[in-house]
Design a protein around this nucleic acid. Structure first.
Length: 288
DNA sequence: TTCAATGTTTAGAC
DNA sequence: GGTCTAAACATTGA
């Protein structure tokens, strides 16, 4: 999926378009992705859109919410008028799907609004989900209740991370920061970029990380994520949305997918290894 | 043909 | 219980 910055970008784009809209109908034939009762969504108004970790929350009228996770390849595509391809807002995997006529074979949920506009949930790999919960129960759901602090909140502090590290002293730091129960919203791309920024090797064990380094890491988490949000994330390519914006963060990567290229700091070679099954990029000279 | 891809969960071994 | 690995979900494209 999109990680935190991409989700944030999607939300900011969607907010301008669908706040206040009334759902007239919801269709889906993929129970694994959407198994709720579409009828309960009828006539509900979209009051606001929030993000928690990498999830999107639509708060609807009368205490109902939609919890959406795009996982690896989910997309939300908004069409002002059904059938026309202008005024589209998109977010998700950089496939050309959203350029084609919708719905297509990767469209799994369709939201129709009273004013004839449409929101499509597309997901090539079908890992994602759209679930219905009462708004006042969201914090107690299995999806949200175990999440760690949001990166921009003060609860993410060096002391907090010292405690996390005490609990998992033998776990590699990359795994620590990607674990959503420790910190919310960091995925594989930004984990690599954040660790390069902090000059910490992804292989370092959490128990060996000093408090000063955790402090630096938190600064990098915020800087990298803020920068990525400013650039509209890094997953939206080959497409200009209604505002003429597209994700540009991929142009600023210092290590991610730069295997064999020169380190921007020391000129050494960026190395690619595997950690917890995920491709990991770092500079062995700069990151210790 | 084989591998890796923005994510998360689960099962098994030590 | 901690930690590691692999696999599962499914599709595409290099």
């Amino acid at each position: 999926m999109p990680e935190l910055p991409e989700v944030e970008t999607i939300i900011r784009g969607l907010e301008k378009k669908i706040l206040g809209k009334i759902i007239s109908k919801v269709e889906s034939s993929r129970p694994r992705i959407f198994s709720g009762d579409p009828e309960v969504l009828k006539d509900r108004e979209i009051l606001n859109i929030k993000r928690r970790a990498k999830m999107i929350i639509f708060n609807l009228s009368d205490n109902l919410s939609l919890l959406i996770h795009l996982k690896m390849t989910g997309q939300l595509v908004f069409d002002e008028k059904k059938g026309k391809q202008k005024n589209r807002i998109v977010g998700g995997h950089p496939s050309a799907d959203w350029m084609s006529e919708l719905p297509n074979k990767h469209t799994h949920v369709i939201f129709y609004f009273k004013d004839k506009s449409v929101l499509y949930y597309n997901d090539m790999m079908r890992f994602g989900f759209v679930r219905i919960y009462p708004t006042d129960m969201l914090d107690k759901t299995k999806e949200l209740s175990k999440l760690g602090p949001e990166p921009f909140l003060a609860t993410l502090s060096p002391d907090y991370l010292m405690k996390v590290a005490e609990k998992h002293p033998k776990t590699k730091i990359k795994q620590i920061i990607m674990d959503q129960s420790n910190i919310s919203g960091i995925g594989n791309i930004y984990a690599d970029e954040i660790l390069f920024c902090a000059r910490i090797s992804p292989l370092r064990l959490a128990g060996n990380v000093k408090k000063k380094e955790w402090k630096k890491l938190i600064e990098c988490v915020r800087t990298i994520l803020e920068t990525a949000i400013k650039h509209g994330g890094s997953t939206i390519r080959d497409f200009l949305n209604a505002e003429g914006k597209k994700g540009k963060m991929q142009n600023y990567f210092k290590v991610y997918q730069r295997t064999g290229k020169e380190c921007v700091e020391c000129g050494g070679e960026i190395v690619r290894i595997k950690i917890v099954g995920r491709g990991t990029h770092y500079c062995p000279t700069c990151q210790k």
